[in-house]
Amino acid sequence: MLEIKNLHAELEEDSDVKILRGVDLKVGAGEVHAIMGPNGSGKSTLSYVLSGRDGYEVTEGSATLEGHDLLDMEPEERAAAGLFLAFQYPVEIPGVGNMTFMRTALNAQRKARGQEELSAGDFLKIVRAKAKDLQIDADMLKRPVNTGFSGGEKKRNEILQMALLEPKMCVLDETDSGLDVDAMKLVSDGVNALRDAGRGFLVITHYQRLLNHIKPDVVHIMSEGRIIRTGGPELALEVEEQGYGHILEAV
């Protein structure tokens, strides 16, 4: 599914700031991988470089989704190819209705894949059903994108978009940050409902607690722009008990 090889990236405006220093990672279809790591280790940058955000220069390495070169595509092409990033900080866009936004996005992806666009009525049915599972009410759908949403509402809105767009590869950046216990459960249930033999997940998190809800197959530890250790779910527990310091020292 997702294959990252020796990925190096630096800041476009300052090539002295080298953030990714050779990331290797392979997520197969149906697998859930977690990336853990201290703040500043490059986790968000990896998600941005994969999804095509401006401001970073890839100097070496590759990233492919089902064999397609991601780095060569525009952000919207990556999305249409099946990549989805749930943002650490979902963006507030006043003036653009949440529904309009989601319908535009879904139809754009359908169009890019040669599928017919959905009518407003059909779309409404689909979005309502999916919103219900995430306890997203009509009001949240009507309001401008993420505008005035609480932290939990924003994260639920991200998962709603993910459910709607049905991506092949989901990257979730700190989806647990700012969530209370109930919201964490809602969001994790939403993610788990999407687990599927054909879909890959890369769950980025600083803390282990999310991984109690979304059980990973593989756990990676990232530090200073590299994956320094890879293991099973027990690795997350090790971090939880002993902190990052111990693991970093051991490398």
């Binding site: 095509g52 955000r53 919207e76 999305a79 535009t104 879904l106 754009a108 767009l165």
Partner: peptide
Amino acid sequence: SLFYLRSRGVP
């Protein structure tokens, strides 16, 4: 905002 929209597939 532009990146957010594009990351959802909006050209």
